[in-house]
């Protein structure tokens, strides 16, 4: 029996629209995954089920190289961004309100609002002059750039968690002889951990996925997985790209599942 009152399910066409949206969202991804198992060389014509393109990708030195580089950058950048974002979140929630707080908030989230291409060009120019001045051409530039644009993604869940945490816990810790550092170490940090994990996870995925800034900032021979795949598209496209994409998808899903399982118990 239907419950009285307003339910969106009663709107005409609601179910149809919902199904349509999900089809549009997931059909391309399903197609991508299905064709990654295509035995033929076409990304559009199905021949037979095979792991051929997975083994091609696995044996491809360029793919391995790009994967390792992507992971190194994503791990470093998400670690740096998460630490900085945690301090930023503490600084914007765990003190008396001050003038210019909104301004600081906007500043922290700047990478979310400035078009990525603008940041990419700006970084290209400044890093080019640093490269000339120092002669250093390593991964540092990519890690620094990724850390910067990952900060707001790490910041938002951490800040949300802090705002949801009752400050009476920290008051109680201070009352029980904890110094400011001890309060942070034994009370704030453990309670904040799920937020920090969520922030780190989000930052990691955002970094792993980035194309625009990476494309502009990387030096020669510094392809990450997404820029490598972009490069491949300019030539003959084979289901190898599907295989790599599917593997990335699997990694992301695994990470999200792990995160869900880890945080579910604590809350």
């Amino acid at each position: 029996m239907a419950k009285p009152g307003f339910t969106v399910a009663h709107l005409p066409g609601f179910a149809t629209i919902a199904v349509g949206v999900f089809v549009c969202l997931y059909l391309p991804i399903i197609t991508l995954v299905v064709y990654s198992f295509n035995g033929g060389s076409s990304i559009a014509v199905w021949q037979e089920f095979s792991f051929r393109w997975y083994s091609v990708a696995w044996g491809n030195e360029a793919v391995k190289d790009a994967t390792v580089r992507s992971l190194v950058i994503a791990l470093s950048a998400s670690a740096i961004a998460t630490v900085l974002a945690t301090f930023a979140a503490l600084g914007t929630t765990r003190r008396a309100p001050y003038r210019g707080q909104t301004f600081i908030y906007v500043m922290i989230n700047q990478p979310l609002m400035v078009p990525e291409i603008v940041t990419a060009v700006a970084l290209l120019i400044i890093f080019a002059s640093i490269k000339v001045a120092t002669g250093y051409h390593g991964l540092g530039y990519l890690i620094a750039a990724h850390s910067a644009f990952c900060i707001p993604f790490a910041y938002l869940p951490i800040r949300a968690r802090l705002e949801g945490m009752d400050t009476v816990m920290e008051t109680a810790a201070a009352d029980l002889y904890a110094s400011a550092w001890q309060t942070f170490r034994y009370v704030t940090l453990p309670l904040l951990a799920p937020g920090i994990a969520a922030g780190a996870m989000l930052a990691f995925v955002i970094s792993l996925d980035d194309v625009v800034i990476t494309e502009f900032v990387k030096s020669g021979g510094q392809d990450t997985l997404p820029t490598y795949m972009l490069g491949q598209l300019r030539r003959a496209v084979t289901p190898e790209v599907n295989a790599i994409s599917s593997a990335l998808l699997a990694l992301t899903v695994a990470l999200l599942t792990a995160f869900f399982l880890l945080t579910r118990k604590r809350d």
Binding site: T171, A172, D175, L176, L191
Partner: peptide, 20 residues
């Protein structure tokens, strides 16, 4: 003096037990 340096302890209305 800050609270952590006073020989005084509090039972809070909400108890404020550490959930972790």
């Amino acid at each position: 003096l800050p609270p952590n340096r006073r020989p005084v302890n509090t039972v809070f209305q909400s108890y404020a037990l550490f959930p972790h």
